[in-house]
């Protein structure tokens, strides 16, 4: 009984915290982007403009939720929910601290990869059901981009799996007690980070959206709360990838003095800021450049990393 209650508390606590955090990220991103562009950003509503989040929420709920008459209604409605659900489900396998974890799956990492692949459906279906050429183009791009980056996202993680000898993320974190995997798996980390940016289709890999050529890409026709779900889904994705990088390469909750939760939150926060810094810095590559970069640079690096890690492990083990 107590166990069940504990689980429920963790699940709903996480849902609440994650939604709040990803909503807060909207404010954070705007503030940070402004900082890096010599502006102030939203600083009027409430202390430091923090209530901007509330104002945005009220606005987005009050906006007309319009479904274009030419859209494929059921698919159009279900598309934004998929990304939210898939991302939330991925959080289930992430161990925030030894105590806070929804489920300790032995195939945790595979589960995450599967869920992030499902996330693609959201974007593709949104683009397709909108029955609008820009949305469709965005959807097609998203499909191609996310599928190809998925390939070496998976490969880049296999090095850590080899080192830890487990797919369970908790075991991977525990295996980093001596040395964080960001050092032996440096290339794996870089590849995973880049793939993560592409996976959440954030700038500089936001070709499915690319405002200046595709209006808003796959969510051109979305408004009101459905648009809000895509938006929050995107920020959830950032949080997810940041949390994963923390757990897989930067020792998760491990760290001196401070309690584990704080360590995890701090590291995750750092990577979220890095995501935003990327957006503030880089221009968007052309679509063929993106694909070429993925297949010609990232994939070989991931493979090489895998082979070398495997070789070293074999040599050591033998």
């Amino acid at each position: 009984m107590i166990e069940i209650v504990r689980h429920l508390v963790i699940i709903f606590g996480l849902l609440f915290v994650l939604t709040t955090v990803s909503a807060g990220l909207i404010w954070l991103e705007r503030r940070l982007l402004a900082l890096w562009q010599d502006r102030y950003g939203p600083n009027r509503v409430g202390p430091f403009g923090l209530l901007q989040v509330a104002a945005d929420m009220i606005k987005i709920f009050a906006k007309e939720d319009w479904i274009p008459p030419f859209a494929d209604k059921p698919v159009f409605v279900i598309a934004p929910t998929i990304i939210m659900v898939a991302t939330f489900l991925s959080f289930a396998v992430i161990p925030f601290t030894p105590g806070i974890e929804v489920v300790s799956l032995d195939i945790g990492l595979l589960f995450f990869l599967a869920m992030s692949s499902l996330g693609v459906y959201s974007v593709v279906l949104a683009g397709w059901s909108s029955d609008n050429k820009y949305s469709l183009l965005g959807g097609i791009r998203a499909a191609a981009q996310m599928l190809s980056y998925e390939v070496f996202m998976g490969l880049s993680l296999m090095g850590t799996v080899m080192l830890a000898g487990s797919f369970n993320i908790r075991d991977i974190v525990e295996a980093q007690r001596g040395l964080w995997f960001c050092i032996p798996q440096f290339f794996g980390m870089v590849v995973f980070f880049i793939a993560g940016v592409a996976e959440t289709h954030r700038l500089p890999f936001d070709l499915p959206e690319s405002e200046n050529e595709l209006v808003a890409g796959f969510h051109t026709e979305y408004s009101g709360i459905k648009f809000g779900m895509f938006f929050v889904g995107e920020y959830l994705g950032i949080t997810l990838i940041s949390a994963l990088i923390t757990a897989l390469f930067f020792g998760g909750w491990l760290g001196p003095l401070l309690p584990p939760v704080v360590w995890f939150a701090l590291k995750t926060f750092f990577f979220i800021c890095l995501f935003i810094l990327l957006r503030a810095t880089y221009p968007r590559p052309r679509y063929d450049q993106l694909m070429a970069f993925g297949w010609k640079v990232m994939l070989p690096v991931a493979l090489l990393n895998l082979v070398v890690t495997g070789g070293i492990l074999l040599a050591k083990g033998a």
Binding site: W36, Q37, D38, L277
Partner: peptide
């Protein structure tokens, strides 16, 4: 580039 942006 990222570092320069950060310095801003």
């Amino acid at each position: 580039a990222a570092w320069l942006v950060f310095l801003h």
